[in-house]
């Protein structure tokens, strides 16, 4: 990391691709695999996680001066659990069917290592503005990762995207396995491999450039 703390803008951009929570940090995998069998639940989950992440970051940053070192994890957990409850209730009130479909995975956002780690690494040490930008960047990165897997799984598994039918059943025999648990693991393994391969190529190109120079 930089010697001076990264600015808000740097944190924002960081969270989207370079330190993408899923592909780079491998945090928050549980809900990731469970809700990505279609785009609609995946995006709802991304929105809920984003809300909790940003709210928790801002709250922790606001009280960062008052945190006692050995009780800080307790405070983080309390804050995150509260905001997750709020998100869950709002979903149950306004998007009842989606809330039923997502089921226990919304409260499982509490266990999402991503949010606690952002609180610990960034929010408890930085100003509200930087924490907010970090939260937004990480949420966008998370949403992007969810969208990538959900797109593959939904198109291959049901021939639709966001519920809109793209590939009619006559042309494409829907790969049921994509919508089921094993499909999640397989797609994520392949996409992770692709992300690694791309990262390695960039590193090799950069190394080749510096050795030429």
């Amino acid at each position: 990391m930089a010697h001076e703390s990264p600015t808000a803008l740097e944190r924002f951009i960081n969270g989207i691709l370079p330190e993408n929570p899923i592909y780079r940090q491998l945090l928050g995998l549980c809900p990731f695999l469970a809700v990505t069998n279609a785009m609609a639940p995946a995006m709802t989950m991304a929105a809920a996680t984003g809300f909790v992440l940003i709210a928790a970051n801002v709250m922790v940053s606001a009280i960062r001066g008052l945190l006692k070192p050995h009780l800080r994890i307790l405070v983080f957990t309390l804050t995150i659990a509260t905001f997750v409850t709020i998100a869950d209730k709002v979903l149950a009130a306004y998007l009842y069917d989606m809330s039923k479909q997502l089921g226990p995975y919304i409260p499982l956002i509490i266990c999402n290592c991503l949010i606690i780690s952002r609180c610990e690494i960034c929010a408890s040490k930085q100003s509200i503005k930087v924490a907010f930008a970090d939260g937004v960047g990480m949420s966008l990165g998370f949403a992007l990762a969810l969208a990538s897997i959900a797109t593959v799984r939904e198109i291959l598994g049901s021939g639709s995207w966001f519920g809109v039918e793209l590939l009619s059943p006559e042309f494409w025999p829907a790969w049921g396995i994509m919508v089921l648990p094993p499909g999640a693991f397989l797609v994520m393994g392949v996409l992770l491999g692709a992300a690694e391969w791309y990262g390695n190529r960039k590193k090799a190109a950069a190394a080749a450039q510096t050795s030429e120079a």
């Binding site: 693991f185 393994g189 992770l192 491999g193 692709a194 690694e196 391969w197 390695n200």
Partner: peptide, 11 residues
């Protein structure tokens, strides 16, 4: 190389 570690574990 790209699949080493987590990639192959997921597959």
């Amino acid at each position: 190389k790209a699949l080493r570690g987590t990639g192959i574990a997921l597959l």
